[in-house]
Design a protein around this nucleic acid. Structure first.
Lengths: 206, 206
DNA sequence: TCGTGTATTGACCAAATGGTCAAAAGTTTT
DNA sequence: AAAACTTTTGACCATTTGGTCAATACACGA
């Protein structure tokens, strides 16, 4: 059996190797994209032989899909945490900071998604439609509610969310460009205050 | 000879085929990334045989590099046009709109670059350092000048530029996601006014 | 219309790549 | 320690893919 087809307890060694593989695969897929990645690269990065990797996963695609859906949760978290009962502007700014932290702490995951979406989301469309879309609609409604209540300046909630995603993920996805232009390898100092300023000025209802 | 090694006039048919190939390659590279693209795909999209393509270009890499540097000009244009003698806020907003138009009119080019940068810019680093960096520094200085003169609210010019790139290119690079979330294939209606609003509020010195 | 240079292609190649498999090496259980 | 199971791997394999090349088809000026 490949893994735990029929409620088999995954052995210690199995867990260890699966997560090694996934970690190595995240490195490789995020840096090379799906087609650019090879099983040999993943195998080497994981410190395992290629056939051994195929012992834990049915194939390249399964590794990729596992990685994608596994990361999806982490990715949606910050948005889920945005609380309709909180103070409007604070909630939005907290969301921005959470996203920015993720770009800093999980750049590989960010690039993994960016690659996938760029290529037309061949393996993620279902997830986007099934998981992200409802959440997105719900949170847009929340934001719209805040605006209707006069707690935020009125702007299109959808584009607001897009701009948050774009500005924060940019620091992970375009890191190479940024480090060239800033001639600093430090992960974008000043982004925090800039983005806080940007979205505060946009949204405060004064 | 591959092309015009020694000041040979490129024949009519040569020009036609070279541009066909580049157009087809732009389709394929922007949709699949460098490694994801195959010469066969490009050949088919161009309506030529694979060996015929290799008759016009030395190899896959040369096609890619040609495309990249050829597009680079178009890409820098909007930034170059930003005029230090113009009205500060107008210049910035005009730049934003130009970039947004480019995301709409040349999404393939945008994705081509996004792919390249995402993978660490293996074939573009020189261009980034040699062409983009000086221009970037120059324009940051211009913006800083405007701020020092009290014509714009003071924010970090570099992050300002990053945020302009991020928000505008997002509409091209993440088009699939956006069209899922907006359930509309129209290229992001409302982006214009949202971004104008965003950057106006950020920068007006009132 | 013929000759010369240009364009095009079918047939190949070598390397890379995803994947298989049977056998060997380890573990664990009894 | 033997049986029974899990893990690991060397040797292969079929396909894909970037690229070559000699031969053929084509364009066009003399």
């Amino acid at each position: 059996m490949t893994a735990d087809e029929t409620t088999k307890k995954p052995s210690r060694i199995q867990q260890r190797n699966r997560s090694r593989i996934l970690d190595a695969a995240l490195d490789v897929f995020s840096a090379q994209g799906y087609r650019g990645a090879t099983l040999d690269q993943i195998a080497e990065a994981a410190g395992l032989s290629k056939p051994n990797i195929l012992y834990y996963f049915a194939g390249k695609e399964e590794i990729h899909v596992t990685l994608l859906s596994q990361t999806m949760e982490t990715w949606l978290d910050p948005l889920i945490e945005m609380n309709a009962d909180g103070e409007a502007l604070d909630e939005i700014l907290a969301y921005v900071m959470r996203k920015l932290e993720m770009a800093r702490d999980f750049p590989r995951e960010s690039r993994l998604f960016a690659n996938e979406i760029l290529q037309g989301a061949p393996r993620m469309l279902p997830h986007l439609q099934g998981d992200l879309k409802p959440l997105f609609d719900e949170k847009c409604a929340v934001i719209q509610g805040w605006m209707d209540a006069g707690k935020l300046a009125p702007v299109d909630p959808a584009h607001l969310v897009f701009s948050i995603w774009a500005t924060t993920q940019h620091y992970a996805d375009f890191a190479v460009q940024i480090s060239v232009l800033l001639d600093s390898d430090a992960p974008a100092p000043g982004a925090d205050s800039f983005l806080t300023d940007l979205f505060t000025k946009l949204l405060r209802s004064a």
